[in-house]
Design a protein around this nucleic acid. Structure first.
Lengths: 193, 193
DNA sequence: GGACTAAATTTACAATGTGTCGTATAGTTT
DNA sequence: AAACTATACGACACATTGTAAATTTAGTCC
């Protein structure tokens, strides 16, 4: 959970742990705008004032939790093999490690990644696109004339990372109907272009 | 802007229009959790109590605005040509129409789609993935052995729609460095698998 | 174990926000 | 012009926020 080396006092760790657990609990029960410092402190069994000793406000706390998450993911994902070699295997083991890690902590990831805040607009668009793409995939006749347009690097990166994260989120929303291994293989073959 | 047929009173329309404009303005200036009914009414030049005559609270208002947006997008995107034929053209004109529409209303879409709420976690993951994919794309040696794994339909839909929306959001965040037409071509060639 | 230090609690307070009353005023419809 | 209805206004009880003491509790260090 990534503590600065100076932060050794068990009271601090305990309090923050309580707060984090309480926040995740509340995020499961209600949308984030309904979560108040009052409720949070009450659920965490700590005094309301104590909260302010650790975080400026709830958005600040969310940010720090996201930092911790990113640190952990980076640890899991950190590749020992260098990218040149990795690219040549079709397996992409990193992806599988990532999905396994998320599956192991599915409760946490599902809550924080699918929490309804103001992803409203994005969500709506996502649903629209899903319908449309679904219809398109349906009627695909493999019209491959391979015009081979050169693809802008940054566009490919936008496309690939959005696809990856969106797929993971959708997978979590559906309570992981596939194994991480299977999903990793599927994604790999989708992004084979 | 989607008014129920019964809603003809110009006062109602005016008030709602003021509220919507004020909300978008405030979303541009501050993160959503800082927007209060007080501030909103003040900015919209209406009485605070009047707000409650139209919406239950701010999340409710956001939801209704998202409904309106979805309706508009659907209008723009609605395809006259049937999907069977459309799939055979490599153009996918719908995508270009969508991007043009978004570009025309870029101010609105940029604000509502990139507003920092609690997309914190998703955003962090997005950045991580972008780095990783970037590195991978960098060192790609076109290791195509075309193992041709069958792809689950729903996974492909998740993947495709997330990629599309994420790309659009990233494009907006960067203030649209490419024309809608160019981006549409790029995306089409990316999702050519 | 005892002294020192840091964290947490407790109580209090002003400021702001929420949601809901009547009632008055203005604009709309027929 | 009369009937209708949305909006404005003032007021209310209540919750939340952020901060500031003073005090208690718990952990650290020797």
């Amino acid at each position: 959970m990534a503590n600065s080396p100076q932060r050794t006092d068990p009271r601090v760790l305990r309090t923050r742990q309580f707060l984090k657990e309480a926040l995740v609990e509340l995020m499961e029960e209600m949308s984030i705008e309904k979560i108040t410092v009052n409720r949070l402190a009450q659920r965490a069994q700590i005094n309301r004032v104590t909260f302010y000793l650790h975080y400026r406000d709830i958005p600040d706390m969310l940010e720090k939790m996201a930092d911790d998450m990113a640190e952990e993911v980076l640890e899991v994902v950190r590749d020992d093999t260098d990218p040149m070699e990795a690219a040549q295997e079709e397996k992409w083991p990193m992806l599988e490690r990532l999905l396994v890690h998320i599956a192991e902590n599915a409760k946490f990831y599902k809550i924080v990644l699918t929490s309804r805040k103001s992803t409203i607009f994005t969500d709506r668009l996502f649903k629209l696109m899903a319908d449309i793409i679904s219809a398109r995939v349906e009627s695909r006749v493999t019209a491959h004339d391979a015009s081979e347009v050169t693809v802008q690097r940054d566009i490919a990166v936008w496309y690939g990372s959005a696809a990856l994260i969106g797929t993971i989120i959708a997978w979590l929303r559906e309570d992981m109907p596939y194994t991480p291994q299977y999903l990793a293989r599927q994604i790999t073959s989708l992004r084979a272009n």
